[in-house]
Nucleic acid binder design. Sequence first.
RNA 1: GCGGAUAUGGUGGAACUGGUAGACACAACAGACUUAAAAUCUGUUGGGAGUAAUCCCGUGUCGGUUCGAUUCCGACUAUCCGCACCA
Length: 978
Amino acid sequence: MAEVSKVSDYLAAAKSFEKKWSDKWAKENPFKTLGPKDKDFDSTKPKKVILDFFPYPSGAGLHIGHPLGYTATDIISRAYRMQGYNVLHSMGFDSFGLPAEQYAIQTGRQPAETTDENIKVFTRQLRALGYDHDETARFESSKPDYYRWTQWLFLKFFNSYYNRFEVWQDKLGSEVIGRAKPIEDLREKLQSGKWKKDQFGEVGPAGNRYHIDVKKSEIEDLVDAARLAVIKNVDVNWCPMLGTVLANEEVTPEGKSERGDYPVYKKPLKQWVLKITAYADRLYDDLKLLDWPKGVMEMQKEWIGPSEGALVSFKTADGAKLNVYTTRPDTLPGVTFVAVAPEHPLAVKYAGEAVKKMVSLARNHAYEDKTTHQGIFTGQYVTHPLTGKKIPVWVGDYVLSGYGEGAVMGVPSHDTRDFDFAKKYDIPIIPVLMPSDEWLDANAPKGKEYASGKDLRALYIKDCAKFGTAFTDDGIMLEGLEGAEDLGGLDNRTAIRKICEKLEALGAGAAKKTYRIRDWLFSRQRYWGEPFPIVYDDSGKAYPVSEADLPITLPEVTDFKPVTSDDKDADPVTPLGRVTDWLKVKGTILPDGSVKLGEGKDAKTFSRDTNTMPNWAGSCWYYMRYISPNYAGGFVDEAAEKYWSGERFGAKGSVDLYVGGTEHAVLHLLYARFWHKVFYDLGLVSTPEPFYKLFNQGMITADAYSDSRGFYVEVDKVEEREEGGVRTAYNKETGEKLTINPGKMGKRYKNGVCPEDVCNRHSVDAFRCHMMFLGPLEATSPWRETTIVGQERFIASVWALAHRKDLDTSDAPANKDIERLVHSTIKEVTEDIKNIRLNTGISALMVLTNALAAEAKPKKEHVEILLRLMQPYTPFMVEEIYSEGKNFKLPAGVKSAAFLAWPQYDEEKLQADEVTLVVQINGKKRAELIVPATATDKEIEAAAMDNETVKRHLEGKEIRRILHIPNKTCKVLGIVVG
RNA sequence: GCGGAUAUGGUGGAACUGGUAGACACAACAGACUUAAAAUCUGUUGGGAGUAAUCCCGUGUCGGUUCGAUUCCGACUAUCCGCACCA
C-alpha cells in the first residue's frame, strides 16, 4: 500500500488548505450577492433566499447549535447555486439588546466595545467554517447605518393607521379585509366627515353604527390614538431587577423575566405600543399560506387566540353599563352573578381596601393555589338584560383584567370556575342546557334517588348542583327559561345566534371576536437599543423627527447602566434621561408634521424620547437588508427587493427557507410577520409574508459527567471506556468513576463543545459532515465526538481517490453497475438537498465512494461527479483538488468549485438489466431470485413457480390471487393462498 | 388539563405514496500486515433453532383494517417541547 495512513495524510493537507481558502474567500468575497443593477447579474435565473436566524454575538463565540443550522443552509445554498439559481445567503449580527448590554455590565465595559470584539470572534469562526456568506452583508443592527432604517420603519408605524374597513385585492389576487394606510388618509376622512363616531367612540364609515359627528377639536386626538405606534397608558410587565419593562412574550408563565429569571410585576405606565392586535386575524389566517412546522403554527395560533363570542351589557344601579365578554351567550339565562377582576373600576370603587390585597396578588402572578378562588361581594347589583332581574356583582380573583372586558357573567351551571365560585359563596345555580344522558349517568350523585332507571333529566332540572360539576358541552336549551322562553328545545349553537340578535335589538350587546394577543409593548428603559426618532413639545405632544435627521444616534455615555432595584414600587428611570446635554434639542415643525432638528429662526425647544426599542426591532426586518446591505437610498433597493422576493413567481413569502431553533416560535417570528404585513400594506415589500418555509433544527444534547458529590466535571477531563458493553466514564486526573447524565449542553453542566476546537482536531470538512450525519436536521441528537472518525475516513477516501494516478480517462464504456450507481447517487443527493435530508445525502455519497474505491481503475468522470456532489458538503477539499490542477481542473471562466455545474442524472442509466424478484406468499417474503428487467408478468410468475421454496409453500394450497406490486428497486410478486 | 413531537440492533440512524426492516456509520469480534501497537485492508455482527437448505420471533404496549403494517385507524404507556383560570 502506497499510503501509510489515508486519514493522517488528508488531515495534514487539510490543516493548511482550509486556512488558505477561508482567508482567500474572506478577502475576495466570491459570494457577493448581486442584484438587477449589477452588470454580471442574470435576472432570468430563478432565485433562492436561504436564511439563518439573526445571531446575537455572545461573548462565548459560536456554540454547537449555530454550525448545525448554518452548515445545513450552507450546503443547501451551495447546491442550489451549482444548480443554476441565484442564491442569497448572508449573515449579519443582532447586536443591540439586553443580552449584549448585560454582558457589557458584567465585564465592566462599554457595550459598543464588547459587541465589536464579540463580532470579530464570530466573524472569524464563521469564515473558518467555510460558509458562503456575502462579506459585505455582515452588518450589525447596532450600527447607525443599519438602525437608521429601523427608525425609519418605526416612523412608518407612527405615520400609519389600520383601516379595518378597507377591502382590497392583494398581489396574490386574494381579497383582504383591512389595510395599513398613511395617517393622513384618516385625518382627511375625519375632516371631510366621511368617517364618524359610534357610541363607544370608535370611528368608521358614516352609516347606522357610525353616526356621531366628529368635532374639529377631537380630530387630532383621534388621529393620534389611531396610529400603529402609539404612546399609551398600559399595564406593563415591570422588572425592577432589570430596570426595564418587558413584552408579554418576554415573561414566563411563572411571572419571571425570560432573560435572567427575575420577578416581574404589573404596573400601569405610559409606554410605546405597536398595534399588533389590528393584524390578529391576518396573522392567524395567513399561516395557511406558509410551509411551517405544525408545532410552530399551533403555538402562533394559540398565542393569537381568537375566540368568537359576544359582548353583553348589564345595567348598573346608576344607569351605567357593565360589559362582560362571553363565548357562551346561550347560557345567559343561567347568569346568577357577575364577577369583575380585582383591577376593575367597580371593584376598586365598591370593594376598596379589601380588594387591594387581592389586586397585589393578582398583579404579581402570585397565586399559590389556583383552585381556591377568593371573592368579595361589592354590595352592588346590575340588571339582567333579558330577565330584568337583579344580579349581584362580585369581585373574583379568577377574572383576568387584561382579557375581554375584565368582567365575566357567572353561569355556575355551565362553567366549572363559576360553579366552584357559586358553591363557595352560596350563589344560586340555574340550569340552561340539558346535558347528554351519558353525562348525566357519569355525574349523577350516589344514592337511591339517582339509581339507574330514575328520571335523571327531571332530577337535573330540579337541582343541577347535585351533579357536582358544571356541564360545559353543547346541549339542548331547556323549556320555559325566563327571558328565553322562545328558545326551548333549540340546540345551543342556534340559540347563540338568536340571543346575539336579541341583544343587538335591545342595545344590550353584540357578537364580538376577541383575541388573547395584546398589543406589543415597544419601549425599554435601557441604554443599548435604538433611540426613538420622536421628540416632544412642552405640552408633551409627540412629533416624528424628519427623515432627513435620521439616524438619531445613540449618545455615547460612560454611565449606561439601568437603574435596577429589588423594590417593586420603584419607578423606571431611563439611562438616556440622564444625558442632559442630549435631552433637549432645537427644531422646527415642518408642514408634514415632522420636526426638522437644528437651530432656525422659528426653532423651538423639544425634548427627546429617552426610551429605546426592544431587541426584537432590528430582527424584524434584517432579512430585507441582506438584499442590498449597503444601500443608502432606502431600507432596501426596490428593484432588488422585487427580484429577490420572487414577486414575479407569485411568491407568498420572500424567504424561501428559514432555518433555526424553536426558541423564536412566537416572539421573533410573530413580530417579523407583523412588521412585514404593515410594509406590504404600505407597498414597501412585495409579498404578504416574510418567511415561506420555516425549518426547525433540532437540539444537540450532550452527556454531562458528575462525580460522587454531584459536581460536574469538565468534559475534557473525562475518559470514556467500554466495560462489559457498558459505557463508563472516569476522571482522567483522579481516576474516579463518574456518573453519565445525558441532557442539554451548557456552561453549568461543563459539557459545552467548542466547534473551533473540533475543527482543529478533525478538519472543517469532517466537522461539517459530522454535524449533518448526526441524524435528521429536525431531530434532537446527542453529540459524540468519537464517531467523527467515520467522516474523516470517508473524506480521506475521496481525497485519495481524487489523487490516484491511474484513473481511467479512456472512452471505454463504464461498468454498468457502477454507472447506475453514479446516476442513482446524483438523483438521491439532489433530492436530499431539496428535502433537507442531508444525513442520507452523505450516506449516498459514502456508498458511491466505497464502490469507486473498490474499482480496479475508477473512471475519472465518475470521480468528478462525486467531487461535484461533495462540493456543498466539503467545500475546502473540493476547492483544493480543483485548484491543484492535477486530475481535475476548473473550466475556463469558473473561478471556484462552488460555481461548477451540478451533475445531471440520466433516467435511462438508472435501469438495470437484471432485477431482484421478491416472492411474497400471504404477505411473507418466501424467496428472492434474479430475473431480467424486461421479464413479463407471465415470465415472472413462471420463474416464481419454479422455485423450490415457493413450491413447498404452495403445496396443497389454492392460489386465490396473484399481485404484481410496483416497487422502485425490485420486482415484488404477491401470491395469496387459502 | 389542552396542543405538538418522538419511540426501530450495543449506539447514531435508514426504509420516499402500505410491499425485501436494520441502508450508511460508530462500537465490538475475528483475520491479514506489523517485533508490537496505532493506522490500513478483509470478514462477521437483531434474537433464536438447525450441519445445511430453511424456519420461527422481532420496529414502545394492546387491539383493528389488509394478501401484506415501522408506515393507516383506535386505545394506552414513556420521554421531550409549548400553553395553561382567556370565560
